Simulated scan of single mutants.
Amino acid sequence: MTDACPPPNPKHYDRHDTISYAPYPRSIPLARRRVAQLAVDWGHPDAAGDLAILASELCTNALLHGCLRDRLFRVETSLTGTALRVAVTDPRGERLPDSRPSHPDDQFGRGLLIVRMLASRWAVEQLVVGKTVWAELDLLRGGERG
């Protein structure tokens, strides 16, 4: 985790969207497209691609490591005056994200590295049931990416 800090108070969001998805691979592109479209709709098209990648990686991790059969996972997208955030909540709080070394031939294992490289900050919040993994992209004045 990098730069762990508490999530913003929902009352301080300029925009906020929440949707739950079934724990199936087809949910990942749906979430990715929704998050990208929200970034565009909220006036930050330059951040849409990176936010979509973050959502894709966090959703993939939730699907592979955090979901239980017949339990939905939730994707929350929010905009504050200074950042775009994507947060993914799944029901398996005992399975925390952990970076591991990957080899060039590995098909998996680079998701958190991608999150770490793209996000301005990211963290994990343990919940009573489950966990939320979130990542933020800083925005400069005028809406450009920081």
Rank of each mutant, 00 (worst) to 15 (best):
M1E: 14
D3P: 03
A4D: 11
A4W: 14
A4K: 01
P6K: 04
P6Y: 07
P7V: 13
P8Q: 08
P8F: 10
N9W: 11
N9V: 09
H12I: 06
H12K: 05
H12L: 15
D14E: 09
R15Y: 15
H16G: 10
H16I: 11
H16Y: 13
D17G: 00
T18P: 05
I19P: 00
S20M: 09
Y21K: 00
P23M: 04
P23A: 02
Y24A: 10
Y24V: 15
R26S: 13
R26L: 12
S27A: 13
S27V: 01
S27F: 04
P29A: 08
P29S: 07
L30H: 08
A31I: 02
A31P: 10
A31L: 02
R34K: 00
R34Q: 10
Q37D: 04
L38K: 01
V40C: 11
D41C: 01
G43T: 04
H44C: 08
P45H: 09
P45D: 04
D46Q: 14
A48K: 06
A48L: 13
G49Q: 04
G49P: 09
D50G: 12
L51V: 04
L51N: 06
L51D: 06
S56N: 06
S56I: 04
L58T: 07
L58P: 11
C59Y: 00
C59N: 02
C59H: 03
N61W: 07
N61G: 05
L63D: 06
L64E: 14
G66H: 03
R69C: 02
R69F: 14
R69W: 13
R71I: 13
V75Q: 02
E76D: 14
S78C: 07
S78T: 10
L79V: 00
L79R: 03
T80D: 07
G81A: 11
G81L: 07
T82L: 11
T82W: 11
T82S: 15
T82E: 15
L84K: 00
R85V: 13
V88R: 02
D90M: 10
P91D: 01
R92N: 03
R95G: 03
L96E: 14
L96K: 07
P97D: 00
D98Y: 13
R100Q: 14
H103Y: 15
P104S: 02
P104C: 01
D105T: 12
D106M: 03
D106C: 02
Q107P: 10
R110Q: 13
R110F: 15
G111I: 00
L112M: 04
L113T: 10
R116H: 14
R116Y: 03
L118I: 15
A119H: 09
A119S: 04
A119C: 05
W122G: 02
A123K: 00
E125G: 01
E125K: 02
L127E: 11
L127C: 08
L127H: 03
V128E: 15
G130M: 12
K131V: 10
K131C: 07
T132W: 10
W134L: 02
A135S: 07
A135N: 09
L137K: 00
L139G: 01
L140Y: 08
L140P: 01
R145T: 09
